[in-house]
């Protein structure tokens, strides 16, 4: 068992049996991924028929997506901050029985990776559902999916959305994780209150 496997041993258990806030984070990540997907798809594959005609409306839609992403980013920071704050005692205990700072940091990082992964799966499911239900309504926003090269572009948009949502989640985690891994082991000494 190397160090990463040891971190994962604990992360997996915390994740599976973990708190409700994890689900909230998961949903935010999913919404983020979807918003990014919409944004990139529109960028990579605009609908030539409508781009000029409704340029202003489309720009507004793009703007709304970006605002949505920014708000999600802030919400993620708040959620991660709440999650880590609720775990001060636990992390102090781990430090007290021998965990290094890097272990605490990696633990949060790996747990968040799991959250992000589930969020992506959720996003994919939601995305498929949305596409099936509302494709007509969304059509002005995107180009012809059947056109040459459209599939590759859609795939690119998908990967870019995945990567962006991942980066956003990790950025949101950074500050709370850095803060909590500086915790001193003596916090384990006091009664949980």
């Amino acid at each position: 068992m190397n160090q990463l496997q040891k971190v994962r041993w604990l992360a997996r258990r915390n994740f599976i049996r973990g708190s409700f806030s994890n689900y909230a984070a998961m949903i935010l990540v999913a919404i983020n991924a979807l918003a990014f997907f919409g944004y990139y798809l529109h960028r990579f594959l605009p609908n030539p028929l409508y781009t000029n005609e409704r340029a202003a409306a489309l720009q507004a839609a793009e703007f709304i997506l970006l605002v949505c992403i920014a708000m999600n980013f802030l919400s993620l920071i708040v959620i991660f901050w709440l999650i880590t704050r609720g775990r001060y005692h636990e992390m102090g205990l781990l430090r007290g029985i021998g965990a290094r700072r890097i272990f605490i940091f990696s633990l949060l990082f790996v747990e968040t990776q799991m959250t992000v992964f589930c969020g992506m799966v959720l996003a994919a499911l939601l995305g498929l559902g949305l596409a099936k239900m509302g494709f007509e309504a969304l059509q002005p926003f995107f180009g012809d999916m059947a056109a040459d090269g459209a599939f590759v572009k859609a795939l690119l948009a998908f990967l870019a959305a995945f990567a962006s949502a991942e980066i956003i989640a990790m950025l949101a985690l950074l500050y709370p994780a850095l803060k909590i891994c500086r915790i001193e082991p003596h916090s384990a000494l006091h009664n949980r209150e």
Partner: peptide, 20 residues
Amino acid sequence: SRLRGREIGFVFQFTDLLGN
């Protein structure tokens, strides 16, 4: 941290376990 993990065993007054 190494010392705490390997050389020292500590039983805290207010017992703390990992709830998960």
